[in-house]
Design a protein around this nucleic acid. Structure first.
Lengths: 153, 153
DNA sequence: ATGAATAGTTAATGAGTTTAACTAATTTAA
DNA sequence: TTAAATTAGTTAAACTCATTAACTATTCAT
């Protein structure tokens, strides 16, 4: 790739990822904003898929300090969405799980988000969206590696 | 597209966009975190490309209320990065422009971010990244339309 | 058994957000 | 042409999320 092409691609990427992210988060918020913040939704989503998790794990996935997670989880425990349970084998560890009402709320919210995303991705040809997501996943993997490499230095 | 394919694509998209965004923002922050927040960087970037702008315009682009912009701009004016100047024709309007030191800082930061993004996108074939960004831009346009359509209702 | 490492919390501080009420200026329409 | 509505921006209070640094409690390692 020549230098100008690269510069142009960088600018288009930075501009577009900003545009997409802002609009997408705003649309999601429009769907779920009264019940959950976007971060809280992603935390429920993570726990839903993993069954249970720890603060350290969330801090790692969300790229923030553990104390930021403590604060978010406190709010969600106060709202009755999440429960903390100590590991009996290693008493330093606290598992986070969804309560029944947490799961119920998540499923509601999930439905709304799926409808939203569906109304968008069905505007593409299946091939185009598949190719897009494949590259997107490759990008996610490269960023993961980049992060690891940075820590290694 | 059949229902299962759609469901799978939605899940992959939601998961991947979350992963990419978190990692990317963390990497950018690692480059510029001591000088600017990510939002402040994007505001400088926007003004750099537009020459000057207003709070209302930024609120629209950033998908937040005008008072959120006021707060950010106040901090940046305090840091000497941005200046406010009243429009003489319509005295309600206040233009936001970069100071010399704002521009200097932006260019520094811009350089770091370009190196970062370059190190990532050069790991793809030119065709793949071009196709990807084309679809990404199409997605941005669809989200814009979606937003307008929502306001129209 | 003690010193280091790990998991999580607390407290202080700062950035960004929303809502609602406000000022000031401009546009509109009766 | 003036009164009402709209537009641009700010202020204040309250909330969420973030960071750093210091802390508790537990487990691991030698």
């Amino acid at each position: 790739m020549n230098k100008e092409t690269i510069q142009e691609l960088i600018d288009r990427y930075v501009t577009t990822s900003f545009r997409v992210h802002k609009k997408a988060e705003a649309l999601v918020k429009g769907q779920i904003g009264n019940e959950l913040t976007n971060d809280q939704h992603y935390i429920l989503r993570y726990i839903f898929h993993s069954g249970r998790c720890t603060s350290t794990e969330l801090a790692d996935v969300f790229e923030v300090n553990k104390s930021a997670i403590t604060a978010i989880i406190n709010r969600m425990v106060d709202k009755g969405l999440i429960e903390r349970t100590r590991d009996m084998a290693d008493r330093r560890v606290i598992y986070l799980t969804m309560t029944a009402s947490g799961k119920e709320l998540f499923l509601e919210v999930q439905k709304k988000i799926h409808l939203l995303v569906e109304s968008i991705i069905t505007q593409f040809e299946e091939t185009e969206i598949t190719v897009f997501i494949n590259t997107y996943e490759k990008l996610a993997q490269i960023l993961d590696d980049k992060k690891k490499e940075e820590l290694g230095e």
